[in-house]
Amino acid sequence: MSHDFQPGTVWLVGAGPGDPDLLTRKAERLLAAADIVFFDALVGPAILALVSPATKLVGVGKRSGRHSKDQGSINALLAAAAKAGKRVVRLKGGDPSIFGRSTEEIDHLAANGIPVRICPGITAASAAAASAGASLTLRGLARKLTFVTAHARAGEALDLDWTALAASDATLAIYMGRAAAAEIARNLIAAGRAPDTAVMVAVNVSLPDERIIRGRLSALAFLVETISDSDPSLLLIGEAVAAAGNERTVYSGEGAMRVALADRI
């Protein structure tokens, strides 16, 4: 790994969904070789515990709605560390290339003549499907998989192509969608998606307190009511994630518990 990680280089590393066992072997080696690690708020203590005590850890926030550093400041910190001859890891939750704003960091580093490389990670949608024993695609019913971010500026409506997203042969993986759940359901149904389309809400994916909540699209706003602002959540929508029969299920990290939810689901 030493020949891959020269001083003055920045690696954008995917931390995966949270379980340290889901880190790639390459990510773990990069963390061990780093002089300094800039990490996002969604990167948990179990991942950070893998970093050498001799390595400097710098939290840079980047959690939906609560950014401790703006993107420009993060770019500047990465460039300064690399120019000082450090082996720099920029540790991002999930996969750096999926809603990780990697392009902004890559462009800034490249403009400063700093070598930058990417180590991919397992994204939350893949981890959620694995935890629930589900598939993100389904032969004959779900031929497409669409990743969407539901993050919008305060007070602004989501600017999405609802007609395209309402296609019945697609699975939607909606990141940062808890706060906009009611708006998402309303717009998808208005655009033609069936109200009884299966949905799955994944909370704290891959962690000991993980929850998987199943229901239907028309009840999405109700399904997310018990989810805290501080709990990362992902919405999966489509027939590929349908529960067996008509039973609604909630799974937790301590095992599976079947529950009958209210008639409004």
Rank of each mutant, 00 (worst) to 15 (best):
R117E: 15
V148K: 14
S2D: 15
A191Y: 04
N75F: 03
G85P: 02
V205T: 03
T24Q: 12
P7M: 06
A167L: 02
G215F: 14
R216W: 08
L138R: 06
P232S: 04
R186H: 08
A127Q: 06
I74T: 02
E239R: 07
T24W: 14
W162L: 04
L223H: 15
N204A: 09
T123V: 15
I174K: 10
A170V: 01
G253F: 02
D209P: 05
H151T: 11
Q71F: 13
G18D: 04
V51E: 05
R25Y: 11
A80G: 00
D19Y: 05
G61T: 15
R90I: 00
A260W: 13
V201W: 11
M200W: 12
L50C: 10
A142C: 06
L136K: 10
A182V: 11
L57E: 02
A127S: 08
A152M: 08
A84H: 00
N112W: 05
P20M: 06
A84P: 00
R90M: 00
K26L: 13
K56T: 09
D209T: 12
L23S: 10
H151A: 11
A134G: 02
N75L: 04
L42I: 06
R211C: 11
L217D: 03
V199I: 15
A150H: 12
L50Y: 15
S135Y: 01
A132Y: 01
G100T: 05
D95I: 10
G16T: 10
W162E: 03
V203T: 11
D40K: 06
A27Q: 06
A128S: 03
A81T: 00
L57M: 04
T249Y: 15
N204P: 07
M176R: 07
W11H: 06
E105V: 08
L138G: 04
A166T: 02
G121R: 11
P20W: 09
E225F: 15
F147M: 15
L31E: 11
A129M: 03
A164I: 04
Q6K: 07
V51Y: 09
A15K: 02
L217G: 04
A134C: 06
E254V: 07
D196N: 03
S52A: 12
L109V: 02
A124G: 06
A185L: 04
A27D: 05
H3Q: 14
G255L: 01
R248H: 11
N112I: 01
R153L: 09
D70E: 15
A157M: 13
G100A: 03
S131E: 01
A110Y: 07
R66N: 10
G192C: 01
R258E: 10
E156Q: 08
T55I: 08
L261V: 15
I118D: 08
T24G: 13
I174F: 12
A34I: 04
G140V: 08
L42R: 04
A180Q: 14
G14W: 09
P120E: 12
A81P: 00
G72A: 11
S68A: 13
S68P: 14
S206W: 00
P195S: 02
L42W: 02
G245V: 05
D231T: 11
D107N: 12
G177K: 10
